[in-house]
Simulated scan of single mutants.
Amino acid sequence: MAIVDVRIDDRLIHGQVCGFWIPHFSVERIAIVDDVIVHDEARKTALKFGCPGKVKLSVFAPEAAADKFIRKIDEGIRVMILCNRPKPILQMVEAGYKVDSITVGNMSTKDGAKQIKKTVFVSEEEKEDFKKLAQHGVKIYSQMVPNEQREEITNDFK
């Protein structure tokens, strides 16, 4: 399995992911990692409906995802890991899966969140999760679409 990107976008499957990121990385499978969505059949069905026809969609809890990625079950398939917040990625890292970098796209405004980029609003809990990821050596980048300049924001969480 070739993990082509680990991306945070709270919209998950949407126009930018389908229209820009999937073609950019020639993604064959999207792996949504989320401990809530994995148990929500209606939401999984809706996400599968929004996924392009040639792209497979899997939904995993963080620990199961870490195990699957460590064992390289999908060897040879181009996979994008997609999450709606940093917590599932931190849980995968704490379960032993190595993540080199994260690309943050959109994190919508929410109560108590601080805007750190044009479309990135981070709560205190999310900031702590990013901080822990940075302590694990994970580089954090902000980038909405492939033709936009990728900007490292790791130091925003130290």
Rank of each mutant, 00 (worst) to 15 (best):
K44S: 01
M1F: 03
P86I: 03
F121S: 09
D34Q: 04
E126L: 00
A46I: 13
L47V: 06
I116L: 04
K117Y: 09
W21A: 04
K72I: 01
I37T: 14
K158W: 01
V59D: 02
E124P: 00
F130K: 15
I30F: 08
F130M: 11
V79D: 05
L133S: 01
A134H: 02
V55S: 07
E152L: 07
N84S: 14
A64D: 15
I70H: 02
I13E: 11
D34P: 15
V38G: 03
D67P: 00
L47Y: 01
G112V: 04
R85I: 01
V104G: 04
D5T: 03
D9G: 09
I30K: 13
M144D: 08
R150M: 12
I81R: 05
V6W: 03
G19F: 03
V104I: 15
F25D: 07
V138R: 08
S142N: 15
K56M: 05
I32S: 12
F69R: 00
P146D: 09
R7P: 12
K117L: 10
E28T: 08
V59N: 06
L82Q: 09
I116N: 06
K98D: 14
D74C: 03
G112R: 02
E152H: 12
V17L: 02
I8M: 04
G76R: 02
G53C: 03
T45F: 06
F69N: 02
F130V: 01
G19W: 00
F20L: 14
M1A: 12
T103L: 13
P146A: 04
K132W: 02
K68V: 07
K48L: 11
D34I: 07
E41T: 09
K131G: 10
G15H: 04
V145T: 13
L133F: 08
H136G: 00
D74G: 01
T45G: 03
L133V: 12
S58E: 14
K118N: 09
R78A: 04
I32H: 10
Y141H: 09
V120G: 09
P88R: 06
D156K: 15
V93A: 14
T119A: 07
K158Y: 04
S108V: 12
W21L: 06
V120K: 04
T154S: 12
D10M: 06
I77Q: 11
S26T: 03
E124N: 10
I81D: 03
A64I: 07
I89N: 01
G19P: 05
V93I: 09
A113L: 02
E124Y: 03
R78P: 05
P23R: 15
P23W: 12
A134D: 10
P88Q: 09
T45H: 12
F157C: 10
P86W: 11
D67N: 06
E75T: 02
V6P: 00
V104M: 02
D9F: 11
W21M: 13
D111H: 05
K139H: 08
R150V: 07
V27L: 12
G76N: 08
A95Y: 05
V122Y: 02
G112K: 05
D74Y: 13
I8R: 11
R29C: 06
G96L: 09
V6F: 04
I89S: 00
C18N: 15
Q149C: 00
I32L: 08
I102V: 15
V122L: 09
Q115I: 11
Y141M: 01
I102Q: 05
A95C: 06
